[in-house]
Nucleic acid binder design. Structure first.
Lengths: 207, 207
DNA sequence: TAGATTGTTAATCGATTAACAATC
DNA sequence: TAGATTGTTAATCGATTAACAATC
């Protein structure tokens, strides 16, 4: 099935499956089944089999799936069987915490560039990385061929930053600023806004 | 329409609408329309009208919606026309950044308790809050009647922490640990895992 | 072999959208 | 009034699930 024919919602579940498989690897499990995965994830086994069937046949009747094999296949499908460089824009409290987070590398990503517009921060280090000036950003992104970025600036700068990133060749943006940004077709944006999640849950609280 | 009849997916969009309305307020706009909101959010105007119709009639034909009124109504519907106390468990880099983040109060929440299992951290301050020992957690949560918590511990502690939280009366958990946790019916869990978002986008990258 | 589980089809279920009368 | 936009219905669209033959 052609890449473009596969629904976004299916793609969206693949990393969830992959995360569960990596967990199973950590538990030294060699075989699993759509039933077990579904149980752990709160998803029906039929859905898992259907989702995977978009990409090929990875299981064995009567047995299930080899954990290592399926994990590798999903990494390949998701393009995370390599390491993508990430530029992080906005190095406040949140940006610093993201920069310190070590969990990205095992998932196919590494933050290699930090940018901030505040002259007071430029030149400072966070871990092994030096914070660079926004003015250098476009050139650096192009030189390093960076395709992925994170925005952790205040909301009112996010759109401008996004425009610069896209102009410099970035194709995927993870936006921590609490605002929808618009980008041209072909550029993906995903959002992280804890306030949205809290408000969703508050609806169901009553006292 | 009864609360329980309204699809989760509709509830999930209300905070997005609210965020856009608050933004419009900041721009000092008094009136908006389902078309304008849809335009900004990348959602059809019909969907916005349909979603709102689950809760009442908030607009005026030929005119649209009063921004302030609709924002207030959504805050009321979502139960965020008050301030929920939040307990944050796990005060590493990420936990500290979350604790410093000032954006929760304007959205109906305030972090009022910090817990960590590491004796070296207990007693230290983050802003105005003192980190307390996990051993005190259950008592404190019950005394303060806390219903909302965030987990920012490593993945392998998240399930145990969640169990303790739920036993102490917590009904909504925002989990930053990259693992699905299971809780009894009636308790809501939402997840924040940047790795999942990055991997979703990587699928569409090609070089 | 008997039991288990896949991959896939067809049916069901639910969400989105188009269209329009009502009306400001 | 004329133009615009809501709230709602019915149609469309798409996603999920149940069921089962194939087969390990």
């Amino acid at each position: 099935m052609a890449r473009s024919d596969i629904p976004d919602i299916v793609i969206g579940r693949l990393p969830i499956y992959l995360r569960a498989l990596v967990r199973l690897q950590a538990e030294e499990r060699e075989i699993t089944s759509s039933h077990e995965l579904g149980e752990r994830l709160g998803i029906s086994s039929a859905q898992i089999r259907k989702d995977l069937s978009h990409f090929g046949e990875f299981g064995k009747q009567g047995t299930g799936y080899a954990v290592d094999t399926l994990a590798s296949e999903l990494q390949r499908i998701l393009n995370v069987d390599r390491e993508w460089q990430i530029a992080l824009v906005g190095v406040g409290d949140l940006g610093r915490a993201i920069a310190h987070y070590g969990g990205f590398t095992q998932r196919g990503f590494r933050i290699t560039q930090l940018f901030d517009g505040d002259p007071a921060k430029v030149g400072k280090r966070v871990g092994k990385l030096k914070i660079r000036d926004m003015a250098e950003m476009a050139d650096v992104l192009r030189e390093e061929n960076i395709r992925v970025a994170m925005i952790a600036t205040p909301a009112d700068h996010a759109q401008d930053v996004a425009d610069e990133l896209v102009a410099a060749g970035v194709r995927a943006i993870l936006n921590y600023a609490p605002i929808i940004i618009s980008v041209r077709k072909g550029v993906r944006v995903e959002y992280i806004d804890p306030g949205i999640h809290l408000q969703r849950m508050a609806y169901y609280l009553d006292d």
